[in-house]
Structure formats: structure tokens, C-alpha cells
Amino acid sequence: MHTPTRPHDLIVSPFLDEYLVLRPGDSSGVKVQGHHYMELRQLATSRGPLPDWLRSAARRRWGLDLGDRTAGDVLLIRDPSPYGHGRASYEVNNGCNWACDHCVYGSKRHEGLSWAPRARLLRTLRDAGVLWIELGGGEATIDKHFPETYAYSYDLGMQVELLTNLSTMFRPHMVELLVSRRPYRVTSSVYGATEATFDGFTGRRGAFKKFMRGLAAAREAELPLSLSVVITEKNAHEAAAMRALAERFAPRVREYTHMSPTFSGGDEPLAQQAPEYLHSRTPFTGCDAGHTSLNVSPFGLATVCKVSRDHPIPLLKEGVAGLARLGGISDRALQRQDGCSGCALQKSCTTCMPLVKLYRKAGSPLDRYCQHA
């Protein structure tokens, strides 16, 4: 099991081609020069005094008074990494306590790594340069090793985002965990504005009450909430009420209206699409997936992203060096293939090639993903 360490006040870390000073649990940061990074690294090792420029920057950015504390007491210094992966999503466990029909995970089996290999996996991600990590599932918080997973990610100097359905957020040990080690974001989804709709959507009686209790607990603890309003044919009649509910609790609200196939190409979520909520999306112009970000399955298999899961890299076997292949895998996955290779509308296409392949595998209607419809 993970033995908790003293939470740090600031993280000093390389991030891609830059150097950042971050406050755990805050999405904002301070960009510094390379010589400042080296200065703080040396001061933390020698337990020297904090430089005045950092005290001033912390006060301006976060209202944080560092007093007369030493660098070793305040700073967690992240080592440089030869691998350029700054972000990762880690599916802690694909099991879930709800049964939503729109879910892209399809069959949600409750399985994942035991603690020892999981801790090794998190250290591997740290060594790969991952500074921002998303912990999700399934429902991550029902995994038996979630508390250690969350705390260890934080203690390794990663900024943590938690994806959760909030069904366990009201429990005292969960609140204590997230208050003592603040995430920079807690993201959840709104599936209904009434008990009947929400419970029907999730297939679980009592889900709405748990969601609202979790929502209230997160707000009381002043956790940084982000809510996604998911609109399908089951709950479209409450779209306006769901938006109002989300805006009451969270400063950051987004809408998801396009249903995608499961990550294995199953068509079940497509039947949940509310046709009136299909609309034009912005063109896909490329992404950093596989180059500066990656996805990790419950068993430590690294892939380009959640959608593009071909040619997985077993991190527990190959270690961080295995990620050197991921950029090439990404470049090949994003190349237009088959009927898309000669398409004259490529520059305005709104769907990446890995997602196109899932839609095709699921036998999706063309209007869900292609302009030629």
C-alpha cells in the first residue's frame, strides 16, 4: 500500500519544451525559464531559502504566502524526461455501478491491476514526463485501490483530474481524500434533472439521489467541478432543466449530444442518439495524441488515445522506453484510409480516422460522421 507523504505546496516541472511552477489542485501556473528551474532544483536539494521572485509569483498567481519556509519544505521538483508525454488518461477500472445505454465502454467488466504493478505503472507515467493525469473508468472511485491510486498520483507530482459519476463523493473518506490532495478538476455528467429520468438513464434506482448528494458534497468542499450535460433520446425532454442544474453547481459546463460507438466498435450507443441534436462540428485538424499524450488501459496497455487502441504497448513489460513507438503508431492511425483516402472534403472533415473506423465497424448511418451523407 502507498504510504502518504507530506503534501507539497508547489510543483516545479518540465512540461514539453517549457518549465512550469504549479500549485496542486489549481489549473493555472507560472511559466519560468530553464535557469529558474535549475535554481529551484538546486535550492530544494540544499534546503536553501526560496528566492524572492518565486515568493512574489506565488502571491500574485495564487494569493499564496510562503513565509520564510525553505525550498525543500515547499517544492516538489520533477526530473526532466527524454520522453515528451505531458498528459495521460488512465482507466483505473472499467467496472461501473451504473448501466447507461450510451456508454462507450460497452461491457463494463470490473477488473484492473493489483496495487504493486499499479504503483509501478504510475511511476512509469511519471518518468515519461506526465504532469497532467486523468483518472477515470468505468467508475474509478469504486475500485478497491482507488484511494492509493489517487494519492500516489498526487504524491508523485502529477496534477490530477478525476472523472466520476459522483455516486461515492458524499462519503467522508472520499471528501477527506480530495480535500487533503486537491484535484485540479472533478468532471462528471448530468443525465437527467429529475429522479425518474436520471434513474431510468443509468438503469439504477437511487442514482439521482446519490448524484445530488455527491454534487452537494463537492460544492461544499469547494472542489473544482466541471459538468457535462449528456443529451440522448432518453433525456432530451429535460435538456433545458439539465443545463440549469449544471450551471447551478459548476462554473464549467459542456454539452455532449453526438453518440459514438463503443471503443470496441459496438453499435449500442448509436441507438440513443437524439436526432434533433445532431449538428455540424468543427473540422478535425489533427491532435497531439500519441506524441504528447496517451491513454492507459486498466491493465497498463498504452495506446494513442481512448478511441485509437490498436497496437497497444505493455508498459509493465517494456517500461517507459516502449512509448518511443507511440508517435509512429499515431501518425499511421490518423492517415486517411480506404474510401477516405481520396476524399475531396478531407480538409473540412470533422471526424478523425480512428473514430471513422469505429463508426464503420458499428454500421453507423453515414450522417453521424461523414459530410457525404
Rank of each mutant, 00 (worst) to 15 (best):
A221V: 03
R185I: 08
T351L: 03
D338P: 09
Q42L: 15
Y359E: 05
R281I: 14
S28L: 11
L64P: 00
V74S: 00
H8S: 12
N97Y: 05
R55P: 02
T303L: 10
D79M: 14
K347Q: 12
D101S: 11
R118F: 08
K31W: 04
D68W: 07
G72S: 06
G112K: 01
S293T: 14
D73K: 15
G327T: 07
H35V: 07
A44E: 07
M158L: 03
R87D: 04
Y105L: 08
A151K: 04
T164F: 00
L156E: 05
T292N: 07
A57P: 03
L301T: 07
D143K: 01
H85Y: 04
L131F: 09
C352L: 10
E238Y: 14
Q33S: 15
Y154Q: 03
Y19M: 12
R336Q: 11
H279M: 15
L323A: 06
C287M: 08
L121F: 13
L315G: 02
L326H: 07
A373L: 03
P269G: 10
A221N: 01
Y184R: 03
A88M: 05
R325Y: 08
A88R: 06
I329M: 02
L122H: 10
Y184C: 01
S280V: 11
D68K: 03
C100H: 01
D367E: 14
V12W: 00
T3C: 08
D331C: 08
D101K: 13
R87G: 00
M242Q: 06
R126W: 08
C349M: 02
